[in-house]
């Protein structure tokens, strides 16, 4: 035990580890807050689709030898999020199929580009780390770190400020609209926040595993709690706990960050399932 603590303290000396933890916690917080809404609105998979778009754009940015891909990836993802969430409500191609098309298309295109134009010596390693987010959280540049922090703080502030509106729009969009709420604006806001959070969270979990950050905390909290506020708070706690533990374990054991966090979440989910059953039996 002592050995582990010593090792942890030793790693904590490094600023990049502290940064990774701080950014991780912020990302965990905002992804879980918005996750509740996304899961309830039946948009669990939007994270997956968007992260694939982000992957494709990253590939293009890398092929074009851009230094900071975030500045390109973010706007492209935001635009896709707005378009995707809009088609969800229109006839023609339903949201589900649109999501699948965009997600697969971006993934295929991105990988193809990386293959054709790759400058790096270790292509499969690059792809793997973009998909599964192996170490990128530990190698964030200072500028990216501050950008991450600022965007997360903004997302959390927006969520708190519009908490009641987001609840109303999620629970019953028609009713909110009948009361004169600008539901289109709130849906737009949710789409933009989702895109921003997905791009941020990709640093942590990679584009294939980013949905775990969005879905698991919310679903676990819903097993046990019956009010929107309790679910939101609980999923934030689960998310922060999971990400902190995940990063620490991955540093100590040398496992990939994204999958460690995802596996931890799965464990937490089953624990909460059990708790929910117990609670149901007692009542």
């Amino acid at each position: 035990m002592n050995e582990i603590i010593e090792k942890l303290l030793f790693y904590m000396e490094y600023p990049f580890v502290r940064h990774a933890l701080a950014v991780g916690v912020m990302i965990a917080l905002c992804s879980s807050l918005l996750g509740v809404t996304l899961v309830l609105k039946r948009f669990s998979f939007i994270g997956d689709g968007l992260s694939h778009v982000a992957f494709g754009t990253t590939a293009i940015a890398a092929a074009a030898n851009m230094t900071s891909s975030l500045t390109v990836v973010l706007p492209v993802t935001v635009v896709s999020a707005v378009l995707l969430l809009r088609t969800g409500r229109r006839a023609g191609i339903n949201g589900d199929a649109a999501l699948a098309m965009v997600s697969v298309g971006a993934l295929a295109g991105g990988y193809l580009l990386m293959n054709l134009l790759s400058a790096g010596p270790n292509l499969s390693g690059d792809v793997c780390s973009t998909l599964f987010g192996s170490v990128s959280i530990l190698t964030l540049t200072e500028r990216d770190m501050y950008l991450c922090m600022a965007l997360s703080v903004a997302a959390i502030a927006m969520f708190l400020l519009f908490y009641n509106k987001i609840f109303a729009v999620t629970f019953d969009e028609n009713f909110a609209r009948a009361l004169g709420e600008k539901t289109d604006f709130y849906n737009f806001m949710i789409a933009v926040m989702t895109a921003v959070i997905i791009v941020l969270a990709m640093n942590l979990a990679g584009s294939l595993l980013v949905s775990a950050l969005v879905v698991f905390p919310a679903i676990s909290a819903m097993r046990v709690f019956g009010s929107f506020r309790a679910v939101t708070v609980c999923s934030a706690v689960i998310s922060v706990f999971g990400v902190l533990c995940g990063i620490l374990v991955s540093i100590l054991a040398g496992t990939p960050v994204g999958s460690t966090i995802a596996v931890l979440y799965i464990g937490i989910f089953f624990v909460f399932c059990g708790l929910g059953k117990l609670k149901g039996r007692r009542e």
Binding site: L40, F167, A168, F171, F175, L179, S227, F228
Partner: peptide, 30 residues
């Protein structure tokens, strides 16, 4: 905002985690 509306239930609401108070309060939005 003088109009109240009782829509048909949507599938989303069937398993929505919200307390009764939270839902009733959301009627005060307008």
């Amino acid at each position: 905002g003088g109009i109240g509306y009782l829509p048909q239930q949507t599938p989303v609401q069937k398993d929505f985690p919200a307390s009764v108070r939270e839902i009733v309060l959301s009627g005060c939005q307008g």
